[in-house]
Structures are given as C-alpha cells and as structure tokens.
Simulated scan of single mutants.
Amino acid sequence: MTPPPRVLSTAAADAMMARLAVRHGALMFHQSGGCCDGSAPMCYPAGEFRVGGQDVLLGHVGDGAAIPVWIGAAQFDYWRHTQVTIDIVPGRGAGFSLEGPEGMRFIVRSRVFTDAEADALAAAGEPRRGDSG
C-alpha cells in the first residue's frame, strides 16, 4: 500500500493560499503545537520562519502542492497517528499568520490513520527533519 499523505488542504484553504501567494510570493506553514494560537497552522512568506532540526516536514499543500507544511517535533510525536487537513474559517487569530488581515484563520482538522495506513507509513519511514542552524 502506498502511504497516505500526512497533510492535505481543503479547496477553501487552497483558494486563500492562492490569494496570499499573489500578495506575498511563495508561502510556507509551521505548526509549533504551543498553547493558544501556537496550536494553529501559521502561514508565512517562504523562509520567513526558520525551521530547524526539531521541525518535521509533513508534506506540501495548495494548488500544485507547492507549499511546505512543517510541524514541531514534539507536536509531530503527539499527532503522528493522524492525517492533518488545513482548512480556513471566518475569524481572526492572535498571531502573525498572513490570513489574519483577511478576517479568516487557518485551522487543522485531523483523522486517525487506519491500521493499514499506519503500517504503510511505518514501512516508508518517517518524514524528514528540518535543517538545523
């Protein structure tokens, strides 16, 4: 079995990402797993948030799957058994995420991998960690 993607995005989130990319250029996501808005996916211009050895690349989202999604290693350890979907809802978070001024906020929805999916992910190995420095 081919391993399932660890991260997906909804059509609504993809549309917001496309609008933000027109304004800000290439994008990236990071989810730290901290309290409050640290548990929400934060969207930044690519390279504005520096990932390190304690960050895990979940995958890529957006039209053409070009936007990397990173997560803190501690949060990944907690969520490794779930598939994450980035979505967008009305509202405003308290953070530096690019969608805030649009009156919207990115959120994550998740589901637990099936046993077969978990086995396929284990056979494929874990996602790579970020570069330290």
Rank of each mutant, 00 (worst) to 15 (best):
G72T: 01
P45Y: 01
R80L: 03
M16P: 00
S39C: 15
G64Y: 06
C43G: 05
V61N: 07
A13R: 05
A94P: 00
V22M: 07
E48Q: 15
D87I: 05
P41R: 03
I88D: 04
F49Q: 11
L20Y: 04
P5T: 10
V22L: 12
I71M: 15
I86S: 06
G72E: 10
M17Y: 07
G53H: 09
P5M: 02
T10P: 09
G33E: 11
A74M: 09
I88Q: 10
A18S: 14
A26R: 13
I86N: 04
M17F: 14
L8K: 10
Q83M: 10
A94T: 11
P45Q: 13
G64A: 06
H24R: 07
M16W: 10
A73Y: 06
Y78K: 07
P68L: 06
R19A: 12
T10V: 02
F49P: 00
T82S: 14
I88R: 10
A65N: 13
P45L: 01
G38W: 04
I88N: 05
G53R: 13
G64E: 04
W79Q: 12
V22R: 15
I67S: 06
A21F: 02
C35E: 13
L27G: 07
L58V: 07
H60N: 12
G59I: 05
R80Y: 02
Q83F: 03
P4T: 03
H81W: 02
C35R: 12
P90D: 12
I71E: 09
D87A: 15
V84K: 05
P68W: 04
A46M: 09
G38D: 10
E48T: 11
Q54R: 13
C36F: 11
A66M: 03
V22F: 00
Q75Y: 14
G59M: 06
V89N: 07
P90Q: 03
A46L: 15
D14P: 05
A40F: 14
V56H: 01
A73T: 02
G25Q: 09
I86R: 02
V56P: 00
C43W: 03
E48F: 09
Y44H: 14
I86L: 14
V51M: 07
A15F: 02
M42A: 15
L20E: 08
V7F: 08
H30M: 08
W79F: 12
A11Q: 12
A46I: 01
R6S: 03
T10D: 07
V61C: 05
V89W: 08
A73R: 09
D55F: 03
R80G: 00
H60S: 11
V84R: 10
H81L: 08
S32V: 09
I86W: 01
A18M: 04
T10M: 02
R6K: 09
G25P: 04
H60E: 13
F49W: 13
R19P: 06
V69L: 07
